[in-house]
Amino acid sequence: MEHGAGGHEIGVHNLAHFAGLTFNMDTLMMTWLTMAIVIVLAVLATRRIELVPRGWQNVLELAVSALLEQIEATIGPKGKKLAAFIITLFLFLLISNWLGLIPGFTSPTNDLNTTLGLALLVVVMVHVLGMANRGPIKYLKHFFEPYIPFVFINIIEEIAKPVTLAFRLFGNIFAGEVLLLVLGMLLPYVIPTAWLAFSVFVGVIQAFIFTMLSMSYLANSLKDEQH
């Protein structure tokens, strides 16, 4: 797939080779841009924390409070340690999803590398936290419950987790951008604009779904004995 041309043609990447690995430079650029936007927004919103919130602080606090509430509800008191991770995940995905809606930019999340990377990160965290929480032997044992043959089902489930997470987000955002371009070429202004507005909504929903599912996976591994 080495087309090399066109910075924002969907699914086509500028490639760079470094240390024996191949990198999609446009995805990385967009990721860095997203990171910069997230950092700027977060720092702007929290530079002067005021007792009575104003402006950006209000917006960010609204999102953070809602997420904290969800974390508290699904994970419990242990979720406090993961709150920063989960909130960052949501903000990053939200800005990523929206970035591709601006002409000339693409979403970092329209690259499977990004979504799969994040999904794998979440799954690795799930297993590591699970082992740390319950002890490695006990944690591994629960894959063989209730009967030993269930191990196959459990392993498929564990593999399905990152795959579904990654492909759902990737598919939604990628398809959204493809459709946006196609509609733009085929139809007058009104319909692409309507689709654009809908994509804004889809961006929020997908970021939210990814975050919520990650949260519930993490909650499972952080839960105490009963589940």
Binding site: M1, F18, L21, T22, F23, N24, T27, L28, T31, W32, M35, V38, I39, A42, A84, F85, I87, T88, L89, L91, F92, P108, D111, L112, N113, T114, L116, G117, L118, L120, L121, F170
Partner: peptide, 21 residues
């Protein structure tokens, strides 16, 4: 949908973002 080194870079990027935020 080719998986390559970008995946690792993205994990790294995200962890940095988490740390900064």
């Amino acid at each position: 949908i080719d998986i390559n080194g970008t995946l690792l870079a993205q994990i790294f990027n995200f962890l940095i973002l988490v740390a900064i935020l």
